[in-house]
Design a protein around this nucleic acid. Structure first.
Length: 869
DNA sequence: GATTAGGCTTTG
């Protein structure tokens, strides 16, 4: 599998915190503090300094306005008139794509962006025109830092060139090239949306110094849990290690109980009395983090406890690292700043190091074991009172319980919500009897609510064994007989945190639950219900095999020889790394959607992976080398010239300097390998039709050398080969032998560490129990039945991948229409970019078996994204 | 500016 670390890619969330402009020596200088958020780490960096200004924020100062003598040209007119002088012209557009900053040499950069015209000239019908813009040098660097997608920019001082990617991207036949002192970009940014983490300040006119507006907010200090002094009122942060949902106290309030801890390892009990439920801590599970303001420290039984006091407020957060930091609170105004954010991050990181988080937050019905106590996240479908101390809740979570679920029969017309469901759905519904104090909270619940029920007990055995035989008329009647049935009880009292909580619709857990539920097709439910044989139930507690009404063949097969039974994704997630699993799943989604981005270059030596540069970038690398300086050629090289016929007045015929290997010439193989100097990318490609191997070279310091290794070092027909910048030690030599000249031989002669084309995709798999992100990488070629090298060079290979993905995951198709895949997965540990260990999954030894679609795989017409470079 | 509870060793 190699040693490449593949982790879920971290997206760099980037936003400008503030921009300040100074007038400095009569030149405008733009200082931008930008904040980067990367996983759990935050840092600031300052870009821009007292250098001449190249990228300017409009409205920031007098010099930042577009000079009045410049006139704007519509993007559609760029390049239409060969005589146009663009030195006094501008082009305006919105940044719709922004490429990475590519480093060419230590202080030279290149960056590609696409801008789209927004308002000029107004056009109702077709799409607004857009154009590629290539920026060079410090301008590229500044642009990379200062401009975001969505910004509106005005470019001036540009040159216009033919776009080498026009055939591919159909964007614009020309592009804008910005380099040198004259080039400038003016930026204006739409006003930022309000920060959702900073709710508007309270309208209360209260003089409370507390949770006011951000500007007036006082500095809060937080007391560590080993530093609590009895009698004081403090603010504190903690990780929840135990909690009880709010329950009615004997007094006037609801009471909730927390036990929290922090880096001091002290465990401190905390009691909250509030009349209103919404003012209580919104804690959903152990590991949640709470911030408490104004709690009184009391000594009880020789330990410190916390009780809320006047002005009390609480925020709660999810516990796992990397999750969103969205405070849960009913308060409409609260103080919240970067320091709070950092504190939560630190507690999360500490929590994970202490293994305080439960491995499995809640147990799905599919994993419920007889007699076990567990927490359940589910949706309420219906409820019915049984008697004054017992209420029936009918719930489901989209998973299938391994045991038959008992249906409790209730009197007619007492059920809130549907009294029965389709046969298939019924088989997925669990009956929960809630007792005593929980009856009162059940009254508040509405069918459709998403619930978490704490300390639920699975009651096993036959209905008779539970005293619920059909002849019994006591509390409920069960229609099922047998020994393999389950019913659930929520016992009275609040011991062990027993209780019911309604989860907010926007919570992560509810989103996850919905995904699982949506993956259960109606037909499948009915299909399931036919199979009530206990042996079959055992089998069918694993993912459904053919849930669609019209059974579809499985679209992939495993070629491995592991002797292991398929598991559900939820089971797989509960087991550790270092194992191989078989799963039967559907493809829910995949990345990248633009399939050409799945193609990467991989160095087997340093194990680094990089993107394949696009033609715009390559074209600029070639064009930079047009004017070669004088050069001493190596003694083995025979020099000559080759004529490249032109195809238009813009591209006249040119003769270029070529160098041949004496050894190959003597072997009568003059066309096997040429070293070509000063060619453009286009010319190189054209010559590649006539020469087997072309190595583009340039003169540097009076000697012949390769171009920058961002460019291919070798062209072989339509194939291009790249070298690793880190691992190559370039010297231009002729190959040793003459028998076979291929990319390996050439690379070896040139001291180039050859990069390999690979395919890398992230697939989101799903079954009835869960979803899972997996990588398709080392076995991607055998999965698709194509080589990555072919994908880089030929349309048929690209079509094959596109069609395979379309058939596994049809656009706009429902889950029911997606084929099922038998896959072999391996689970392994890898470090993410923040240095945190996480479990990753990779598809191994699995192959798509069916032709991807009914359309011909040899079709040469491609629509939409292809993997063309 | 009172009162509530102060986990738990698990009924139906």
């Amino acid at each position: 599998m190699g040693v490449v670390t593949l982790t879920t890619s971290t997206s760099y969330l980037q936003y400008s915190v503030m921009s300040v402009c100074y007038l400095f020596s009569s030149r405008l200088v733009f200082l931008s503090h930008r904040m980067f958020e990367q996983g759990s780490k935050m840092f600031f960096c300052c870009c821009g300094d007292a250098m001449p200004q190249r990228v300017m924020l409009q409205g920031a100062g007098p010099g930042a306005q577009v000079p009045a003598h410049l006139t704007r040209v519509p993007i559609s007119l760029i390049g239409t008139d060969a005589d146009t002088d663009y030195s006094d012209k501008t082009v305006k557009g919105k940044v719709v794509r922004k490429g990475p900053l590519v480093s060419l040499a230590s202080d030279n950069f290149i960056l590609k962006t696409v801008i789209q015209e927004e308002d000029f000239p107004p056009k109702a019908s077709s799409q607004n025109p857009s154009i590629n813009v290539v920026l060079f040098g410090a301008l590229a660097e500044d642009f990379s830092h200062a401009v975001d997608r969505g910004d509106s920019v005005v470019a001036s001082g540009f040159a216009v060139g033919r776009s080498p990617t026009f055939n591919k991207d159909k964007l614009h036949p020309f592009n804008l090239l910005l380099s040198g002192d004259a080039a400038c970009v003016y930026v204006s940014r739409p006003p930022p949306p309000p920060d959702p983490r900073s709710p508007p300040a309270s309208k209360r006119s209260s003089a409370l110094p507390a949770e006011g507006s951000r500007t007036k907010a006082p500095k809060y200090s937080y007391c560590r849990l080993d530093d609590l002094k009895a009698g004081s009122v403090v603010n504190t942060y903690g990780v929840v290690v135990f909690f009880k949902q709010p329950f009615k106290s004997r007094g006037t309030d609801f009471c909730s109980t927390l036990k929290i801890t922090d880096q001091s390892n002290q465990k401190v009990g905390c009691t909250v009395f509030c009349e209103k439920l919404e003012d209580h801590p919104q804690v959903f599970q152990v590991g949640d983090i709470v911030r408490l303001h104004r709690v009184k420290v009391q000594s009880f039984n020789n330990s410190m406890t916390l009780v809320n006091t006047f002005g009390f407020s609480v925020l709660a957060f999810d516990g796992p690292e990397g999750g969103s930091i969205e405070p849960r609170t009913s308060s409409c105004s609260f103080h919240w700043d970067q320091e709070d954010r950092r504190t939560v991050e630190e507690l999360r990181s500490w929590t994970s190091s202490q293994a305080l988080l439960p491995l499995v937050p809640t147990t799905p019905l599919s994993a419920a074991q007889p007699k076990a106590y567990f927490d359940l996240t589910c949706q309420l479908l219906a409820k019915a009172p049984i008697d004054s101390s017992c209420t029936l809740l009918r719930v489901w979570d989209g998973t299938r319980c391994a045991h038959t679920l008992l249906k409790v029969i209730v009197e007619q017309n007492v059920t809130e919500g549907p009294s029965s469901f389709s046969k298939g759905r019924e088989s997925l519904i669990a009956s929960i009897l809630v007792y005593d104090n929980h009856v009162e909270s059940a009254v508040q619940l509405k069918p459709g609510d998403f619930l978490r029920i704490y300390n639920l007990r699975a009651i096993p055995g036959s209905s008779k064994a539970q005293g619920l035989s059909s002849s019994s008329s006591s509390r409920a009647e069960a229609e099922a007989e047998g020994v393999d049935h389950l019913l659930f009880h929520l016992h009275g009292g609040t011991a062990y945190g027993r209780g019911i909580r309604v989860l907010p619709e926007n919570s992560q857990d509810v989103q996850e639950l919905k995904r699982v539920m949506e993956a259960v097709p109606e037909e499948a439910e009915d299909h399931f219900s036919e199979l009530n044989d206990s042996l079959m139930l055992e089998v069918w507690s694993t993912p459904p095999q053919c849930p669609a009404a019209e059974p579809t063949e499985c679209s992939t097969e495993r070629s491995c020889d592991h002797d292991t039974q398929p598991v559900t994704l939820s089971e797989l997630k509960r087991s550790g790394p270092g194992r191989v699993h078989h799963v039967r799943v559907q493809l829910r989604s995949y990345e990248p959607h633009r399939l050409h981005q799945a193609l990467k270059l991989y160095c087997s030596k340093c194990t680094k992976m990089q993107d394949v540069p696009d033609d715009d970038l390559l074209a600029s690398l070639f064009s930079e080398e047009k004017d070669s300086e004088p050069c001493v050629f190596p003694p083995w090289a025979l020099s000559g010239r080759v004529l490249i016929p032109g195809d238009s007045p813009t591209f006249p015929s040119r003769s270029l300097s070529v160098h041949l290997s004496t050894r190959l010439l003597c072997a009568d193989k003059p066309r096997e390998l040429i070293f070509l100097m000063g060619s453009t990318l286009e010319e190189t490609c054209r010559l590649a039709a006539g020469y087997l191997n072309i190595v583009p070279v340039m003169s540097s310091g009076g000697h012949m050398t390769l171009l920058d290794l961002s460019a291919p070092f070798l062209f072989r027909g339509r194939k291009r080969y790249y070298g690793c910048k880190r691992c190559s030690e370039v010297t231009v030599r002729e190959p040793e032998g003459v028998e076979l000249i291929d990319e390996k031989v050439v690379a070896e002669a040139l001291g180039v560490q050859l990069l390999q084309f690979v395919l890398l995709m992230k697939l989101e798999l799903q079954d009835a129990t869960d979803t899972l992100d997996v990588f398709l990488w080392s076995d991607a070629e055998s999965f698709f039945g194509v080589s990555a090298e072919d994908v880089a060079a030929n349309q048929e290979a690209q079509n094959r991948i596109r069609q395979t993905m379309d058939s596994l995951c049809p656009a706009g198709g429902s889950a029911g229409g997606r084929p099922w895949m038998d896959l072999c997965l391996t689970a392994y540990r890898a470090e993410d970019e923040a240095g945190q260990n996480q479990t990753c999954y990779q598809i191994l030894q699995s192959t798509v078996t069916k032709p991807a679609s009914t359309t011909s795989t040899t079709s040469t017409t491609s629509i939409g994204a292809t993997v063309t470079r």
